[in-house]
Amino acid sequence: MEKKTKDFKHLEKWQSTLANCIRCGYCFEHCPMFKHTSWESDAPRAKIITAFGLLSGEVEPSESAADKMFSCFFCGRCEAACSSGVPLTEIFIDAKKDLVEMGLKGPGTTSTTELNCARCLICVGSCPHDARFYDGKGIATDPTKCQSCGICLDVCPAGAAKIKNDFGTNSDNLIERAATFLDTHESAKAIIFACNWSYYPELQASLLPESETRDKGYEILVNMCGGRLGAHLLMAPFLHNAWGVMAAVCPDGDCRHDGNLRAKKVIETLRNTFKSIDINPERIQLVQIPAGDKTLFQAEIDTFIDTLNQLGPIR
């Protein structure tokens, strides 16, 4: 299987590393894109296969191939789980650099800017990856730097920052899913936001019988990065009679987008607001969960539900 490779000067150095990926697929369960679509072509392994195909000349550098390489929220859980030690996100970034030079820019999950942008530059200052900049006409994104954390979406006052291929992480989508759960489950009490899939304690890719989920008291929604937990998203479940909301984020220093720090500030503000209107602030909580610690996450959820049971519904 040897063909003439195209000019992938950044990707080329990974040739032997790509052979080290034994394609076990153990990365699937951590990937938000695979979780959302259950298409293998959205999983991290697929990007490694695509990178190999681009290098070997078996995959044409097309828009669809580029869209796959540009779709990643850079939670880094795939490479943390990879016992073959393949540095997946570094490979993705180098593939993106080569594709951009060929005129292919995704967008995949890269953030874009709509025409209603007011050029206030808030997103430029807030981007933890220095990916957004003013190009003389408007706000642009460097697709090789953008790590799709979505913080720009949350800070944009005009709603002009977008991630078009959001894979279910869009806040409107999350609000709708929270509302559906709370409106259709009699025992529903809480919405739990988790910043990634690595510590998600429930079934990963399968569905339980309806009889098993009928009496569920809470729903876990994965939002990809605590930096996207704006006040409107956290408050929305209360409009559907939630007793409480909990957000789980990475421990201090573990988030590659520093989104956990932002989440801390937002939740602290909301807790103060709750106090000022005589609502127990324990109804909204932030917990820090290390990658992969499903046991701790479940314990935190159980404690939170116990707290809510003592508090009862908001009257």
Partner: peptide
């Protein structure tokens, strides 16, 4: 359903 060559390539292999 998917028929794009980049998807077909991915599904052409396993472990």
């Amino acid at each position: 359903i998917k028929t794009d060559p980049s998807d077909l390539y991915i599904y052409g292999s396993d472990s």
